[in-house]
Structure formats: C-alpha cells, structure tokens
Amino acid sequence: MSETSHGADRRRLSGHSIVRSRHFRYLLAAAVIGLLPLVFTTSYWRTNLILCAINVMLAIGLDFVLGYAGQLNLGQSAFYGIGAYASTLLVTKLGIPFWAAFALGTVMAGAAGALLSLFAVRLRGHYLAIASLGFAVITYQILLNWISLTQGPLGIYAIPPPPPIALPWLPRIPFTNLANFFYLTASLALIVYFLLDQMLRSPIGETLAAIREDEISAASLGINAPKWKAFAFAASSAVAGAAGCFYAPFVGTLVPDAFFVTESFAILAMVIVGGMGTLIGPAFGAIFITLLPEVLRSIGDLRLILYGASVTLVVLFMPGGIMQAWRLVRQRLFFFAEESAT
C-alpha cells in the first residue's frame, strides 16, 4: 500500500483530519518555537530553552541509532565533543567561517561515528555498549591531555557567537542575543527532526528495523547490515556533532568535562524517559530531563537524586516512557469520551 492511500485511509478513519496531519504538526511546532522566547523573556529561561533545543538534537540523534537500528551506543558524548571542539578550533585557530566549520565539525563527528560502527559490525549488545563507552573515555582523555591543541582542563575561552546572517530583503540577524540564538538552534533541531522523520518513513526506516529485530533474517533478505549500521551510526553521530557545534558558541567556553561519559548517560536517559523507538518521545524526554532539575531547583541537592530515580522508575514501571504514558492517558480519555457520547 502506498504512503498516500495509507494516509488517506487514516484520515477518513479519524474524525479530526487537520490536527492529525504531519504538516499541521510541523507548523504547530514552528509556531511554538516562534512564541517561546516571547513568553519566556528572562535570560535564565531563554538559556534553558536553548539547552532544550540542543538536547533535543542529541536525544533524537541517539534514538536514531538506538531505538530504530537497535545499536546500544554509549559514545554519544564523544561525538558531541568532537563536533564542539572541531568546529571551535577550526574557527579560532584556522579562521574558517563559522558555517563552514559547522559543516566540517558535523562531518568529522559523522566520520568518527562511521569509524565506531566498524566495531558495531562485529559486536552486539553489551560488548558494543562497552566498546562505545571505551571510545567515549578515549576521546575525553584525548581532549583532556592534548594540551597544545585543546588547552586541556584549562579550556578554550571567549568563543565568538555565530556571525550574523544577512539574507536579501531582510534585516541582518545577529546571534549575540539569546532569543535569536534560540531561534537558530530550535530551527536546526526542527530541520534535523524533519530529516530523520523523512528518512524513517522511507524504506530506510524499515531496513533499520529489520536489522534491529533480526540481523540474520535481514541479511537473508539482501540487506547489507554492516553498511546500514555504519549509516545509522554516522547519521546519529553527525547529529550529535551538529549539536556540539552550537553548544560551543552558546556557552562561550569549552572544557573536556562537558563531554565526560556521564553526558552519554544523560542523553540515554532523555531517550528512555521520552520513549525509545519514537522520534517525538525522545524530543519531549530531552525537554523533560533538561527542565526537571530547573523546576526542582527549590529542593536543592535532592533534585539530582530524583533525576536518577526517574530513569530507574521509568524503566521499571513505564518502559515506553512519556509516549507510553501519553497513549494510556489518551486511551482513557477517548474511552471516557465514547462512553459519554453513547
């Protein structure tokens, strides 16, 4: 059945067609992104919004390789760091324009991901988890110890914001203020989301799912599993690298500790809490995990304990995460609505 007739069927079945269409949802997301900085005007909240946008990218990037291709990758902090350091060093040491450095940083992170996928070809499950963890540890130690390049634990300071964009017929858009920087990162997150979504709706999505469910059966259908694993790793790590390219000019300083392996665990928590294997779930998971400590700030040190507890409790009682909770709520609500209608 082709995609269009399938979509048409769904639209006929469900009563409210406009709300359920994808175009409407993208427009809605764009509208929400447009409104957010107008609602949250303090720099504290705008900073958190930018962090949310960066973390959404990291989470959906990891979900692509973890939730769809089924590869447990704990090395995401390394690709995030490679993107951040590569783009920053290209700008500060070689004077390359930001957007070229952004492209190169993304490509380099993607290439590192393809390199790690060489291990994913031979290893599965826990072995891959530890191999990717090892990759993250090595990358962190290189960032920490290659002092002539990265300045090690001293860090790189005064990283300039991206240069203003001058589009024809429009005023120059500078990125020195937080609202514009948020628009920049959030639009990129939305574009990344759109691209991943398109890919997953294409036959690529089914190919990755086949590898996830049973690699041998997939191979018997003529799927070149090593090639597609490499592709999933490269795409996922390129997204993390792109997020890193924006993290550096956003924070303005780079220290290796931002890319310690615990960052991989945080990204994993976003995917799990949101709901692995859906794209929208990890996006909400990222927002939830980013804002949870801020909302809980009044209870002080206990907030990080709650953060760990939320990951454990989700796995134990709601392994589908926020998406599973939402489906349950919706079922109850619709059930209630049908009851009251009859």
Binding site: G125, F265, I305, G308, V311, P319
Partner: peptide, 24 residues
Amino acid sequence: RGSELLPLIATIGVSIMLQNAMLA
C-alpha cells in the same frame, strides 16, 4: 522481560541516584 538493555539503563539510573545521594 528478557531485555538486555533495560536493566543496564535502570542501573545507570540507580548509579546517578546513589552518587547524588552520597554527594548530598
């Protein structure tokens, strides 16, 4: 549940919880 992934992630959560409890 037979998943190799879920216990791993749950113990990462336990680890975060314990570390921060000890930190507090």
